[in-house]
């Protein structure tokens, strides 16, 4: 059934306000999730290489912690981070309650085990003889690690995607540590797409909630496409 112009008018009039609101929410979501994923990746790759190729005391325990961390309840993570940044917590003096920094911390804790676990599987699958070849050609330990990362790049791309997926679709912990705050001008301070969807749906504004839901799906698809493209070496370039 074609839409009558009269039906569309209220939506079009409301749209500029809604768009600022939505744009600020997208910005906060991407800022928090991408920052957390970049930090998690920088932390997780060395850990995955260490656990994958070094023998040390406590390796089994560390592997168990990583595997357990992959399924950590996000609400509990949020609770722990909120306590840490609260006045009674060790980070209380930094005044981080209901800030994007606290949200990044909680998403880091959620994404890091996922990225570490999947990266660990990827780097462990690189054959010993390929790493031996890099060493035998005069490579240093860093060169061998770089070869391992490049050989495992598809698996690592999957790990980053999985971490980003966990971070951007997260509700519980960012709601607790971020507080789902919007400023008086109607833009987001700590409101993310997921917490906004939860709020909008609860208040019966299904159109906005649906638009945010669609944006979330599209964002995840775009980031997937970019990471897969990078994992393919730009589609043409190759690595050692």
């Amino acid at each position: 059934m074609p839409l009558e112009p009269d039906t569309l008018t209220p939506l079009l009039i409301d749209f500029p306000f809604e768009w600022n609101y939505i744009r600020s929410i997208i910005y906060v979501s991407l800022y928090v999730s991408l920052t957390a994923v970049v930090l998690s990746t920088l932390f997780s790759l060395p850990v995955a290489l260490l656990v994958g190729f070094k023998d040390f005391r406590g390796k089994t325990l560390l592997t168990s912690i990583i595997n357990t961390g992959m399924g950590f309840p996000s609400v509990v993570v949020g609770l722990v981070v909120l306590f840490a940044v609260s006045n009674q917590g060790p980070l209380g003096s930094f005044d981080l309650v209901f800030t994007t920094e606290a949200m990044i911390m909680s998403q880091f804790i959620l994404a890091a085990p996922v990225i570490t676990g999947v990266s660990l599987a990827a780097v462990s699958s690189v054959e010993q003889n390929v790493r031996d070849a890099a060493y035998a050609m005069g490579g240093t330990k860093t060169d061998v690690a770089l070869v391992t990362i490049k050989e495992a790049r598809y698996g690592i791309a999957t790990a980053v995607l999985a971490g980003f997926g966990r971070a951007i679709s997260e509700v519980g912990s960012v709601l607790i540590v971020g507080g789902n705050i919007a400023s008086s001008d109607g833009t987001s301070v700590t409101r993310t797409i997921t917490t906004a969807i939860q709020l909008e749906a609860r208040q019966g504004r299904f159109e906005t909630a649906m638009i945010l839901g669609a944006i979330l799906v599209v964002l995840v698809l775009i980031v997937n496409a970019i990471v897969v493209r990078l994992g393919n070496g730009g589609g043409g370039g190759r690595y050692e």
Binding site: V130, A133, M137
Partner: peptide, 27 residues
């Protein structure tokens, strides 16, 4: 770096032939 080694298995990197041949020079 003054010693080279070839293994029973080729153990080539997932890259072009040229990039493989250049590896020792690159590092």
């Amino acid at each position: 770096r003054r010693i080279g080694m070839v293994f029973q298995e080729a153990s080539l990197f997932d890259a072009s032939v040229r990039r493989n041949a250049e590896y020792g020079l690159r590092v």
